[in-house]
Each structure stands twice: as structure tokens, then as C-alpha cells.
């Protein structure tokens, strides 16, 4: 294997599959079988396109539609009136502002709580390490509704119901798994010899962490933070249960909206709600596709 091949292998990520295995059929005359395969591939890609993107496009068109009668493929009349409706609604504006307050707070809090743990999980092999890592997973396994119901009891007794802190905690719960697992994998992927080499040339442990370890783990941490931000941003039910009536965020509003407003207004609101996700995920896209997310789920 040449050096280039080894590289292609080592990088191992969705986007780095640069050296496909040789397909000797490529240069031959297209046989009937190859033609059929190609046709099937084309159908598959189109079906995937419709399945994945179709609903989003269908919804997005709705946000600009005036009159749209079945069975037409697009509206007969276009309008921007639904955007005005949404922007004129004071409570919707307030919920947007709230969403953008909670998500960053939750992300930072979650990072502060989980990142040291992630470092410890990757660097020290203490007894019960794997049990703890796996038990975090239980936070995913217990259905959220059931959790929120009984959490309500705890929240009442701690006077957290209807408070800012209460909402932060509820949203934080949903981020702990990403925030621990993905950075743990990111830290583990850094060879210890890199840290030792830095110690060797005279850097203290803190300097080693901030100049060597952290920069190398940064992509993984970044992915974890973006996912946490989005998890907090999209959390609806817990926020609803705990935050009501003081704190209604965008996704919580979305549930009422779907039931009480015309479809077009809900479509407009959907687009607005999707913008932060699209922007943030686009930023993290390279690392998410590069395998940072996937690595986090293989516990070692």
C-alpha cells in the first residue's frame, strides 16, 4: 500500500473517501447489466431526493402561497402576507428572543459541566469508567415525557417551576450525552505522546492542555457544542412543562401554532425556526461528516 492509500484509509470520514476501490468495469462497454444498474441507481437517487428534500420544499412553498388548490403542484397565487402576520405577532417575537437566550446559556453550562468529565473519561482509566459512560446513556433510554412528569415533583420542591434556571436544567439534560461522548472520543483520539512531547520541552500541564490538547480536540468539542445548542434550541416539551407560563420558546410556540394558525403561517414560522439550525450545522458540517459525530458513539 502506498502512502497515499494509507492516508485515504486513516482519514476515514464521509467526505474523505477519496480513493475509491478500483472498479474495473468503468472502462468497458456498458453491458446490459451495467445499464440496468445505472438506471436503478438513478431511480434511487431521485427517490432519495424526493424523500429527503420534498417535504421541506413543499413546506417552504407554502409560506409564500395565497391560493393553492388541490391537485395543483404549486400555488396559483403568491403572497408575502403570512410573513407579515408572523412578524406582527408580538408573542412570536418574544419567543424567538427567549430561544436565543436559553440555547447559548445551556450550551455553555453543559460544556462547563461535561468537558472536564470528557477529559477524565479519555485520560484516566478509573474503576467504573465504562459503567459511568454507559449510564449517561440511560438519559436517552428513559422516555422524556415520563422523565418530565416525575421531574416536575423534584422541580416543585426545589421551586424551579416557571423559572429560568428550571428551563435551563430541563434543556441541559438533553445535551449531556453528546457533550460527554463526542469530546471523550475527541480527547481519546489525541495520542498521549503529543502531550508528553510538550511536557518534555518544558510546558506545564495547563499550558499543555490549552496549547496542545484543546486545539487538537477542538473540532470534536465544536461539533458537540453545536449539537447541544440545537438540542436546547429545539427542546419543546420539557420547556413547555417547566417554563409555562413565563417562558415560551419558539418550538413550544410551534405546537400551538400548528393547531391554531393557518398552515401558511406555520410554514413561515418553520422557516424562521430552521434558520439557526441550518446556519450552525453548516458551520459544523465538515467535522460532522468527517466522522466526529460517529466516533462519539463507540465506547472504548
Amino acid at each position: 500500500m502506498s502512502a497515499i492509500e494509507q492516508q485515504g484509509v486513516a482519514l476515514g470520514g464521509l467526505e474523505q473517501a477519496e480513493l475509491p476501490v478500483a472498479r474495473p468495469t468503468r472502462r468497458r462497454m456498458p453491458t446490459p447489466r451495467a445499464a440496468v444498474l445505472r438506471g436503478l441507481g438513478f431511480v434511487f437517487v431521485v427517490a432519495l431526493l424526493v424523500f429527503m428534500v420534498g417535504p421541506l420544499v413543499w413546506l417552504a412553498v407554502r409560506a409564500f402561497s395565497g391560493i393553492w388548490q388541490y391537485p395543483r403542484f404549486w400555488p396559483s397565487h403568491w403572497t408575502l402576507q403570512w410573513w407579515r402576520t408572523v412578524f406582527d405577532d408580538k408573542s412570536l417575537g418574544r419567543s424567538m428572543k427567549l430561544s436565543f437566550e436559553f440555547a447559548p446559556v445551556v450550551t455553555v453550562a453543559s460544556a462547563a459541566i461535561c468537558l472536564p468529565a470528557a477529559y477524565a473519561f479519555s485520560r484516566f482509566n478509573f474503576p467504573g469508567r465504562r459503567v459511568l459512560l454507559v449510564s449517561l446513556f440511560a438519559t436517552n433510554a428513559f422516555p422524556k415525557i415520563g422523565l418530565y412528569i416525575s421531574m416536575a415533583g423534584v422541580f416543585y420542591s426545589l421551586n424551579l417551576m416557571g423559572t429560568f434556571l428550571g428551563v435551563v436544567i430541563v434543556q441541559l439534560i438533553g445535551t449531556i450525552v453528546f457533550m460527554t461522548w463526542i469530546p471523550t472520543a475527541a480527547f481519546s483520539a489525541i495520542p498521549r505522546s503529543l502531550e508528553e512531547a510538550a511536557r518534555d520541552v518544558g510546558a506545564g500541564p495547563l499550558r499543555v492542555f490549552f496549547r496542545v490538547t484543546f486545539p487538537l480536540a477542538a473540532p470534536g468539542i465544536f461539533v458537540a457544542m453545536i449539537l447541544s445548542f440545537l438540542a436546547a434550541f429545539d427542546e419543546a416539551q420539557g420547556t413547555f412543562l417547566v417554563g409555562i407560563p413565563n417562558y415560551i420558546t419558539m418550538p413550544t410556540e410551534m405546537y400551538t401554532l400548528v393547531l391554531n394558525y393557518p398552515e401558511q403561517a406555520a410554514a413561515v414560522f418553520s422557516i424562521l425556526l430552521a434558520i439557526p439550525s441550518v446556519v450552525l450545522m453548516s458551520l459544523a458540517r465538515k467535522h460532522v461528516m468527517g466522522g466526529k459525530l460517529a466516533e462519539g458513539f463507540q465506547i472504548r
Binding site: P55, W58, L59, R62, P251, L273, V278
Partner: peptide
């Protein structure tokens, strides 16, 4: 990954 689940569900419903 880029789309909040609430919106995805709503979009799929209308689709």
C-alpha cells in the same frame, strides 16, 4: 440534521 424535528414532522405531515 439541519432541520428541527418539529418542523420536519410538520413538513412530512403536509407532504
Amino acid at each position: 440534521l439541519f432541520i428541527p424535528v418539529v418542523i420536519a414532522s410538520y413538513a412530512i405531515l403536509t407532504f
